[in-house]
């Protein structure tokens, strides 16, 4: 799925695909390219951190089904950022359907 197909979903401001070191591979959206690059880098840093925390939680809880972590959502006052695998989307809360966007990211992450 091309990133454009995620960008056209209601409320999506930007969507980026990034490498394992956080470098942006491709980005689409209405924010400047420099901000897209920064978004990708932050998303990857945060993803690694959440994954590390989840590994620890899984280790001590001994509960299956948490790791490897798929992604995260940070729900802001007016905007939300969500990540699945190496994709990150920035969305406007007023227009976006978070469920639809998470499903699209999950779908795109398998391609």
């Amino acid at each position: 799925m091309s990133l454009k197909r995620i960008l056209v979903l209601d409320g999506v401001i930007a969507v980026c695909r990034f490498q394992d070191d956080g470098t942006i591979l491709e980005g689409e959206g209405v924010i400047p390219a420099e901000m897209q690059g920064r978004l990708a880098q932050f998303a990857q840093w945060y993803r690694r951190m959440v994954a590390g925390n989840t590994d620890l939680f899984s280790l001590f809880s001994q509960m299956r089904g948490w790791t490897p972590a798929k992604g995260w959502i940070v729900h802001g006052a007016n905007m939300t950022v969500c990540n699945v695998a190496n994709l990150v989307a920035m969305v406007d809360n007023r227009e976006a359907s978070l469920n639809e966007i998470m499903a699209a990211l999950e779908h795109a992450s398998h391609e």
């Binding site: 924010i31 901000m35 920064r38 932050f42 959440v50 925390n53 989840t54 299956r64 089904g65 948490w66 790791t67 490897p68 972590a69 798929k70 992604g71 995260w72 959502i73 940070v74 729900h75 802001g76 006052a77 007016n78 905007m79 950022v81 699945v84 406007d92 998470m102």
Partner: peptide, 22 residues
């Protein structure tokens, strides 16, 4: 992010979700 880019809209955060495997 808000300080650096000038883009507002996140603060105050309204939640966090950890999306695990299942």
């Amino acid at each position: 992010w808000e300080a650096l880019t000038g883009q507002k809209g996140f603060e105050p955060l309204q939640g966090f979700s950890l999306v695990g495997l299942d």
